[in-house]
Simulated scan of single mutants.
Amino acid sequence: MDVIGEGRAEPVVVERAAGVGGELVLRRAGADYEIISNGTFLMDTRNGESERLLVRAAVDAALAQDEDGGGAGGGGARVLIGGLGVGFSLAEALAHPAVGHVTVVEREPAVVGWHAGPLRPWSRGGLDDPRVTLVRADLLDVLERPAGGVFDAVCLDIDNGPHWTVTPGNARLYGPVGLDLLAALLSARGVLAVWSAGAAPGFGDLLVSRFARVEELPVPVPRGEPDMVYLARRP
């Protein structure tokens, strides 16, 4: 039995896995699933509004660059998603009519495997889409040895935010060196989008020091402070 009072579901462990960054746990809570990393709640399938906005806003901003004369984007938009998670971002990218190709970087084999099973409905089977390339690697390794060309939207959702990383090494992504590496992946119309579970003080200022236009988009959530999506684009 996994249902307790007030309509809340008591989580039941579906699988434990030894991941690259430590222990990963997939839990089921009623009709939804949760991913726990080293004992810390990472994400679940309950909403996904801010994860969808992460991708949609980035792609739309890249297309707007063409309209403003900021880039000539022939062909479908190329999107890089850092972190497969429960699949909201991938599903949103594939549903966008302007997206031609999506590269997903995910370092945890267990997460990839769960999308062939219980998490498949939330990614809508996106890993089987011919427009998708899955890179099983740490995003930092990909940034330091780029080989996939440039992207019109680079969307990061591999941590709980710039100040709340899943593993300590990820902090480099949100500092000067990491942002310079991310900027190097962007096309002329490229947009960087970063998801955060709440505001990340000082992160917006760091983006402003490297990008011409920066937006902070709060997304209300059922409990607690709003999620935040940071958008940074070229001139």
Results as ranks from 00 to 15, higher is better:
residue 60 D to F: 04
residue 119 L to P: 06
residue 108 E to Q: 14
residue 117 G to V: 07
residue 50 S to V: 10
residue 121 P to K: 10
residue 152 D to V: 03
residue 125 G to C: 13
residue 85 G to K: 02
residue 121 P to Q: 05
residue 67 E to N: 08
residue 56 R to E: 15
residue 58 A to M: 09
residue 19 G to F: 02
residue 100 G to Q: 03
residue 99 V to Q: 05
residue 65 Q to C: 14
residue 103 T to P: 03
residue 30 G to M: 07
residue 73 G to T: 10
residue 142 V to L: 15
residue 67 E to T: 11
residue 37 S to M: 13
residue 15 E to K: 00
residue 69 G to V: 08
residue 64 A to P: 13
residue 128 D to Y: 04
residue 25 V to S: 11
residue 55 V to Y: 02
residue 28 R to Q: 11
residue 32 D to E: 15
residue 125 G to I: 11
residue 115 H to L: 09
residue 41 F to K: 01
residue 108 E to P: 07
residue 60 D to S: 04
residue 29 A to V: 02
residue 151 F to A: 07
residue 73 G to R: 06
residue 80 L to I: 03
residue 91 A to E: 11
residue 32 D to Y: 13
residue 49 E to H: 08
residue 103 T to S: 09
residue 120 R to S: 05
residue 140 L to E: 10
residue 71 G to V: 05
residue 96 H to L: 15
residue 128 D to N: 04
residue 100 G to A: 02
residue 89 S to W: 00
residue 108 E to D: 15
residue 153 A to P: 01
residue 47 N to W: 15
residue 124 R to G: 07
residue 31 A to I: 11
residue 152 D to F: 10
residue 138 D to G: 01
residue 25 V to H: 01
residue 39 G to H: 01
residue 128 D to Q: 08
residue 125 G to S: 12
residue 68 D to K: 09
residue 59 V to E: 03
residue 15 E to Q: 09
residue 71 G to D: 11
residue 131 R to N: 08
residue 113 G to E: 14
residue 67 E to V: 11
residue 69 G to H: 09
residue 123 S to Q: 09
residue 132 V to D: 14
residue 45 T to I: 14
residue 114 W to D: 14
residue 98 A to G: 06
residue 65 Q to Y: 11
residue 143 L to W: 09
residue 149 G to H: 15
residue 74 G to Q: 12
residue 147 A to V: 06
residue 62 A to M: 01
residue 47 N to C: 13
residue 88 F to I: 12
residue 80 L to G: 02
residue 78 R to M: 10
residue 65 Q to K: 14
residue 75 G to R: 01
residue 150 V to W: 13
residue 18 A to V: 08
residue 126 G to R: 03
residue 152 D to W: 06
residue 29 A to H: 02
residue 43 M to H: 07
residue 32 D to T: 05
residue 67 E to F: 04
residue 61 A to Y: 01
residue 65 Q to I: 01
residue 99 V to I: 04
residue 151 F to N: 01
residue 67 E to K: 01
residue 71 G to M: 05
residue 97 P to V: 04
residue 138 D to V: 00
residue 108 E to F: 06
residue 54 L to H: 00
residue 19 G to I: 02
residue 119 L to D: 07
residue 123 S to H: 06
